[in-house]
Amino acid sequence: MVFIFGVNFPEQNLVKRSLETFYGIGPQVSQRIMARFHIHPTAKVGELIQPKILSINAELTNMKIENDLRRHIQDNIKRLRDMGTYRGRRHAMGLPVRGQRTRTQITTARKLNRIERDRRG
């Protein structure tokens, strides 16, 4: 098991997949992080040497990911609502924010747009 940013990963996991488990890290960001530390795309977590793990940890600590990012997004929505903007109102009503039609297909908006956005997504 390898400890990266407070999470234990099995050694046979890909570094890319492991990084992408964090909220706020997708394909692009994981690619950039791995390029910075010269980790090849098919590297396994178990192959990383200790200094590289430490520098990845340091890098992740400086990034706005996980709960910091969730809070940031919540704050953004809250600001819109407090100002009384249309976008804020649509968030609070659980309806699409960016002018989509509401006759069909607004599942994502129903799921995500709340007064207090869910911690999950």
Binding site: H38, I39, H40, P41, T42, A43, E47
Partner: peptide, 17 residues
């Protein structure tokens, strides 16, 4: 194809790997 590990060669300019 990027399937083996690589590292920059210290002291090379432009950087070699």
């Amino acid at each position: 194809i990027g399937h083996t590990e690589y590292a920059p060669l210290p002291g090379s300019n432009p950087t070699q790997y």
